[in-house]
């Protein structure tokens, strides 16, 4: 029996960053590491151990797929892409995070209003 998308949420930071990195294009391991670093502005750096440990789990859960590339200088490298399941989970996680951001802004705004001097 497959899990519902909501049962996989919230995603761990490493998982979220890996799925986000793969959302745009197929990447190999080192490419994912670079993309995660770029997306986070250098704040979040994935080591290969953490990356492949998470990739293995994501492959097992079917959120990420391995892609075979024929020919070329990169033929030895393994490429990964987001599966349709992974894309759905990422979409739900982003929707959840949007809700968190919206709720956070509302609360911060209302706090400011309440605490503002009359």
């Amino acid at each position: 029996m497959t899990k519902k998308h909501s049962e996989r949420l919230p995603l761990a930071p490493a998982t979220l960053h890996i799925l986000l990195a793969l959302a745009g294009e197929e990447l190999h391991g080192y490419g994912i590491m670079q993309e995660v670093e770029r997306q986070s502005g250098g704040c979040y750096k994935l080591g290969p151990g953490t990356l492949y440990d998470n990739l293995q789990r994501l492959l097992g859960e079917g959120l990420v797929e391995e892609v075979k590339r024929a020919g070329g200088e990169d033929s030895r490298r393994r490429y990964y892409r987001l599966s349709s399941l992974g894309r759905g989970v990422l979409r739900e996680e982003i929707a959840r995070l949007e809700g968190v951001v919206r709720d956070g802004r509302l609360r911060l705004g209302s706090t400011k209003t309440r605490t503002a001097p009359a």
């Binding site: 190999h28 391991g29 080192y30 290969p48 151990g49 492949y52 293995q56 490298r77 393994r78």
Partner: peptide, 9 residues
């Protein structure tokens, strides 16, 4: 599965 890639990195 991943040893070779990790060593490359």
């Amino acid at each position: 599965r991943f040893g070779e890639d990790m060593t490359e990195i």
